[in-house]
Amino acid sequence: QTVHVKGVQYHFPNPEEAVKFALKVAKDLGGRVEFHGDEIHVE
């Protein structure tokens, strides 16, 4: 599972961890989380 944050990719073997990370980052940055297939983008 890959999380993209402002052009940087973070790889997580566990999808659940990836989602938790993405939600935390989005909250910290005041952004939103978008799901694109296997990828999660924080915009």
Rank of each mutant, 00 (worst) to 15 (best):
V19S: 05
V5R: 02
Q1Y: 15
E16H: 09
A18L: 02
V25L: 12
E34I: 15
E39D: 11
H41T: 07
G7S: 05
E16T: 09
E43T: 15
L23W: 11
H41I: 10
H36T: 06
A26H: 02
E34R: 13
A22E: 02
G31Q: 04
F12P: 01
E17G: 04
G7C: 10
V42W: 03
G7N: 06
I40M: 05
P13W: 11
E34C: 15
E16C: 13
D28I: 14
V3E: 00
A18F: 02
P15D: 07
V42D: 01
R32I: 11
F21D: 03
T2N: 06
V25A: 09
P13Q: 12
T2F: 07
A26L: 05
P15R: 15
K24Q: 14
E16K: 08
K27I: 09
P13G: 10
H11I: 08
V8D: 05
V3F: 00
I40W: 06
V8R: 11
A26V: 05
V5S: 03
V33M: 07
V5N: 02
E39N: 09
D38P: 08
G37A: 07
E17N: 05
E43C: 15
A26E: 01
E16D: 10
V42R: 01
E43W: 13
V25I: 13
H11E: 06
V8S: 06
P13E: 13
G37D: 09
Q1K: 14
H41Y: 14
P15G: 10
H41A: 04
V33F: 04
D28L: 14
K27E: 11
P15E: 11
F12H: 02
V33Y: 03
F21K: 03
H4E: 05
Q1A: 14
G7P: 02
L29P: 00
V33H: 02
N14C: 11
L23Y: 14
V5C: 07
A22P: 03
G37M: 07
H4G: 02
F12V: 01
A26F: 02
A22W: 03
G37K: 08
R32W: 15
A26Y: 02
A26G: 03
D28T: 11
H4V: 14
F12T: 00
A26K: 02
